[in-house]
Design a protein around this nucleic acid. Structure first.
Lengths: 350, 350
DNA sequence: TTGAAAGCGCTACCAG
DNA sequence: CTGGTAGCGCTTTCAA
């Protein structure tokens, strides 16, 4: 890798003239401005408690600019014993535009509160291993999407490493951490209740064959099951890859199953399935009622127009405030809040 | 809550916030194991050049486990003078599933090479301000999506702060940095050439009214213009919000324009426009030929099936290797590589 | 108003 | 084989 230059020995013998290619430090700025490192720090951080003469300030600033000095965040937070970093492990499941917007808002709100948001890609790690990797960065707060399967152990690791707020966003609360519940069972339940109210007794549930989506599809299925059982209706799982052939195979056996309602996982799978059923000569909603999720524009463009479940996320602002509050007063008991609202948008397909 | 009444006589004054929850350090581990901090470091890092007896190793590891010790990444990289962090400012424009997959691959490949990928949310910052913020983190490499408008100044800042590789991913090369060109003009040109070959002389270009998408739409338009001018064909911009009403307005005036071909920005906008034109009684491709972009599944489900431009990104593996090579041998002259391949997928809509 | 110096947590020298 | 120790770049207290 890197050849380690014997700089220590060199510097001991040679006057303190640093190598040309090294990164400028505050000491370099101080030397150039003819002041001490302390003064540099005071000037560049605008410390109000210390009064520095205007000429000195100018000299320092100029020296910093000329050298292209940039403070070293790691050194700073090491000294401070605290960083302002909010760590957000990047979700491993692909996320939709809805979540993307929510996240952008969240990030923006946090940076308004003077935090630094860092998304950390922890591919392949899960549970406590991931928690260890995150803890090395000493974030002041961690917002962990549920797919990472952070457990009570992991939460403890993070807290012991100095994280003042640990917040999970996912299907269930984790001991010791604040929890923003995003329970996709609600989505399934919402769709199923609509279908049941329409008189459906045999409900199909599309299950994408993409492993990454199981994180969403399983809870949605569970939600459908709950509602269906309560009403004495049947539920059938329908594995479906996101390809025409797979949908065609499903459609070919459709009549055998006698399904009068189908929950299509989301609007895109709904579109795929709808096309296949139409090719098979089946009528929606007469033969089978269909419900999607996400309220995409494409649902309005389909014929019949697609009934769908809209998910309502709260503003990123709110989440940012929760983070900030918790960082400032870490003592409080864990908050558990339901984050996910659902609204059924009825259209022609059901 | 464990209070550790640890009177260190040598510590004259107490640093800020020491008393509360003290995070265990390697010194704590050393004390508990009855060895020196150096030994702890050797054991936990498996330094091969130093031989430590097995009982000592065990004692150290056990002490670390009991205390829940996690090394402090910032302190480590401060000491090392080098981190293994690859900084990737998160793209501000919304990205599709295609890019998402590419990025995941890239991240995975880098972590195989023992780098740590960090996505840094620099909302609101652009150009040199962003570069300054990134430089504070002292990443060993920066991979900057084009939308951040990193300039030669910014590249210089990053390099002076110790970044050994600066790679831009975007429409044009920046002086001093490696460039992976992703020039969306290619996309527009590819679509336009197809339409021209089909005999189109008056080509409409859908321009999404979403500011964030201008980053893609402008170059694509430019690409269409280039191809059209070369062939003496006309080009008309068609502003379109992603809503039915907006598409209906466009469709209502469609006949006046006499467009015989339209480049619809992407498959989703194509679907929207196609529905509106159909409602207006226009026939595709007879009246107007249509081309989308992205080769989404939905394009195959439409009737007529949608002609589209498929973009081919290279494997994330390749990019990861470029990063690694550059970090190890930073001297080389900047590489400029065209990243974006395009393939036209002809279907029924053109 | 400015400077000297301690020390944040860690690792890599060199001595024992 | 293990321990002492210097110092990475920065901030901040205390002293001048």
């Amino acid at each position: 890798m890197v050849q380690i230059p014997n700089e220590q020995a060199t510097r001991a013998q040679v006057p303190p003239q640093r190598a040309a290619h090294s990164v400028p430090t505050s000491a370099d700025v101080a030397r150039r401005a003819g002041v001490s490192r302390a003064t540099v720090s005071y000037v560049l951080n605008n410390v109000p408690a210390v009064r520095i003469s205007e000429p000195t300030r100018r000299r320092v600033r100029e020296a910093a600019r000329e050298l292209g000095y940039v403070p070293h965040a790691a050194a700073r937070s090491l000294r401070a014993g605290q960083s302002r970093m909010v760590l957000m492990p990047s979700p491993s499941a692909p996320v939709g535009a809805l979540y993307h917007r929510f996240f952008n808002e969240f990030q923006w709100a946090l940076s308004r509160l003077d935090y630094t948001v860092v998304q950390y890609g922890s591919v392949g790690l899960s549970g406590d291993d991931a928690a260890l990797a995150w803890a090395e960065l000493r974030p002041v707060a961690v917002v962990a999407p549920g797919a990472h399967e952070l457990g009570p152990q992991g939460v403890a690791i993070l807290k012991r490493s100095g994280a003042r707020a640990v917040i999970t966003v996912g299907p269930r609360a984790v001991e010791g951490a604040h929890a923003l519940l995003v329970d996709h069972r609600t989505v399934g339940r919402c769709a199923a209740e609509h279908l049941l109210a329409r008189g459906c007794r045999r409900i199909g549930v599309v299950m994408p064959e993409l492993t990454a989506l199981e994180f969403y599809s399983r809870p949605r299925l569970a939600g459908v099951r709950e509602a269906a059982e309560a009403a004495g209706a049947e539920v059938r799982e329908l594995p479906l890859a996101y390809e025409e052939e797979s949908a065609a195979r499903l459609a070919a056996r459709w009549r055998d199953w006698g399904l009068d309602g189908v929950f299509a996982f989301n609007d895109e799978y709904a579109m795929l399935l709808m096309a296949a059923l139409r090719d098979e000569g089946l009528d929606i909603p007469a033969d089978t009622a269909m419900v999607g999720v996400d309220d995409l524009v494409l649902g309005r463009l389909l014929r019949p127009r697609l009934t769908t479940v809209r998910m309502d996320l709260p503003s990123g602002q709110e989440l940012a405030e929760l983070v900030d509050r918790t960082v400032r007063h870490p003592g409080g008991s864990p908050v558990v809040r339901d984050l996910l609202g659902t609204t059924l948008v009825p259209r022609e397909s059901s």
